[in-house]
Design a protein around this nucleic acid. Structure first.
Lengths: 173, 173
DNA sequence: CCAGCAAACTTGTCGCGACAACCATTCCCG
DNA sequence: CGGGAATGGTTGTCGCGACAAGTTTGCTGG
């Protein structure tokens, strides 16, 4: 097996990306925990629901919008439910499914947490990049996601939730 | 408090970056666990040591090179030590410090794991980007890191290990 | 020269996420 | 129209990382 090593520019880019992957989530998470007593992931669950008409989604749809596995989401929803921020309910149409709805408390929570979170995203990402770089970053992320997530579950996030993520060939090959 | 919201291009870029942050580490981690029985972080600890003259570093220096807190690193080193991949030893010069050295087994482990890991980095990141985008990504990551890690601990990674990370104002403010 | 502070780790506890196993419902097809 | 597969979700277990003490060694100033 001939090893395709990384040349200088590639290595340089990868090392830096890796550092971002390692450090950025922690910073965002810490801010939300401190100021809103929420995980970043919890925040995005609430946030996703808050942006949905009816403030409710099926578990599976919610998992598409938040890049989560179903088990993980289920645990998180359980915790949020215990705190009264969301509620589960089932639809008689398909009794396998569970729907999650944002409660008024959950809505209020998101309203209070959003400014701080947006501010830190601005401070650590948006503000340090030029408009040009922001466009570049979108394109780069898109390219990586296309390979990472061939079903394009993610890129559908801010568009639709109405169709399943195509043949799920999520093989790490 | 007037909230500086995200406009369309910014939001688009952030949503995609977030998805990458969420998904990419898991994919890399899964490959290493499966093929080498190593965490990605464990791999980078071993890898960092393997690239160091003498294949040894102080704990603190090692933490600079791997973006880890000292407690985390300490735990990981303990595990690696139990598996015989690294060994701790102390230097009489400053008896507070602990040094970590890659064992022959550890060296062999890294040698075996590297090709697979490099391959998946190629497949998921390098190969989907143009040379131009790789340069852009390095610049973007640099900008984010500069804010994230004002001490520039990270950018020093592939250069030097010999000086402390300047006044540690790692305030999440 | 010693008191107090800082540096360098280590250890313990807790919570979240991955994975696997499981249950319920629905779909598909002979 | 009945039986197996597929879909949708939940639960249990385990391991790693964050955070908060605690410990030892070195440093510095009065």
């Amino acid at each position: 097996m001939d090893t395709p090593w990384l040349d200088r520019p590639q290595l340089s880019s990868w090392v830096r990306l890796r550092a971002v992957l390692e450090l950025l989530p922690g910073v965002l998470d810490a801010q939300l925990r401190r100021d809103a007593d929420l995980t970043e992931f919890e925040y995005y669950v609430l946030s996703t629901l808050s942006e949905t008409p009816g403030r409710a989604l099926r578990m599976t749809e919610l998992s598409w919008g938040t890049n989560a596995t179903l088990p993980r989401l289920s645990h998180v929803v359980t915790r949020l439910q215990k705190r009264g921020l969301v509620e589960r309910f089932s639809c008689p149409e398909d009794r396998r499914t569970t729907h999650v709805r944002l409660t008024d408390d959950g809505w209020e929570k998101v309203r209070q947490a959003a400014p701080g979170h947006v501010a830190i995203v601005h401070h650590h990402v948006i503000d340090v990049l030029t408009d040009e770089q922001i466009r570049q970053l979108a394109a780069i992320s898109d390219a990586i996601l296309a390979r990472l997530d061939p079903s394009e579950t993610m890129t559908a996030t801010y568009t639709r939730y109405d169709e399943p993520p195509k043949p799920q060939t999520r093989d790490v090959k």
